[in-house]
Design a protein around this nucleic acid. Structure first.
Lengths: 203, 203
DNA sequence: AATAGTAATTGAACGGCGTTTAATTGGCAA
DNA sequence: TTGCCAATTAAACGCCGTTCAATTACTATT
């Protein structure tokens, strides 16, 4: 066979990414392979290389999609007050990780063999996630310097991320979902309290 | 060849684990393979299966070693005061992750295809790590319930872990080591402050 | 309408992987 | 010395990502 013109390049790419997501949620990350994706969309493995540079590129584009979804969910989690918003962000992040653990975990596997051209949009998206938190932390302590707020946002969000990571590993006690929620609230409460108090001291 | 009796079972196992660590720090986690380990110790791949159930078992034993090293470093980081100890633990943990990133990262890759028999000693070791933190947090707030201290220890340590994770991904700004240190201190300070303050409120 | 050219698609191949197993053969006990 | 046992190996199996020559459907030109 050759040149079937059944699907445009964009269609092919979309079908492949969709199939990949389906395979991942069915068989896990380890179950994803070029051959499986290809057969699922009715093409041979080689054809994928017209749409993706390689397997890592496919994963990169998967991650880009996942990040976009996460981003939109976070934006919808905005609340009236700053404290409520930060807490809501945390819960949303944790829920996202719980509901699509494989796709979420794929975001942080370092498969990048060729770090030639960093995936700009990915990093941009991540930065914009941090910015969401930054704004709320600034709202809690308006007199803080931009550096302080940046560091605090990174710090807090890495903490939230860490809870999600270890929760998914079942290495957080046994009854994972409940204790993860508890740990998250504990982290958020203590951090926010510390953040506000130090603001009162310094500013 | 057969029955060379060059090495005992234990020697073989030790040689394999040592070679694996060397390969990982040279070629990364992705560069580790049974064939490579075998050839590095002068045996064929099949021989490894007399000492390990499978590849995951090898990794499990690698992780056990890594955890032991981490544990001993943390124990040495103990300081006179509780606050200083918690901070010192955090720095030690971050330094450990920085100095042997691949082995440390391997601790948290979920390759376990067969979750039949959980690696008990691994979980035991992890729990004992949390216990170290718990003791210090209890020292900071003696009237807290055991549940509260447990949740707080999990929460704080997951936060520290999250900073280490994202630091290693270079997704924490660009100048990783410096900003990771900053973020860690920020997290520790704010959390500890929050933990102490809420103690004064409640107890 | 016929033809030539282009490019999409494929199947086979390559080297690598974890794992299994029949065959081999050193070491040990009788 | 013989015979058994078990450690070791090479080959094979079915996967994997990736490449590439060959095929052939489409397109533009005549």
């Amino acid at each position: 066979m050759a040149r079937r013109n059944d699907h445009s390049r964009e269609q092919l790419q979309d079908m492949a990414l969709l199939a990949s997501e389906s395979i991942i949620s069915r068989d896990g990350i380890a179950g994803l392979s070029t051959r499986k994706v290809a057969s699922e969309i009715g093409y041979s493995a080689g054809t994928l290389y017209q749409v993706f540079n390689n397997f890592d590129d496919l994963i990169l584009q998967l991650n880009s999609r996942t990040l976009s979804r996460l981003q939109s969910q976070l934006k919808q989690a905005k609340q009236p007050s700053a404290i409520a918003t930060v807490i809501s962000y945390g819960h949303t992040y944790l829920k996202f990780a719980q509901q699509q653990p494989e796709l979420w975990h794929l975001l942080f596997e370092h498969r990048a063999a060729n770090p030639d051209h960093k995936p700009e949009h990915l990093l941009t998206n991540i930065d914009s996630l941090f910015d969401l938190v930054k704004q709320e932390l600034l709202g809690l302590k308006p007199l803080a310097t931009d550096t302080d707020v940046t560091v605090a946002a990174h710090s807090l969000w890495c903490g939230v991320h860490g809870i999600a990571v270890l929760m998914l590993k079942n290495k957080l006690l046994n009854n994972s979902q409940h204790s993860a929620q508890q740990a998250l609230d504990c982290l958020l409460n203590n951090f926010i309290q510390g953040w506000i108090n130090q603001g009162e001291n310094h500013a």
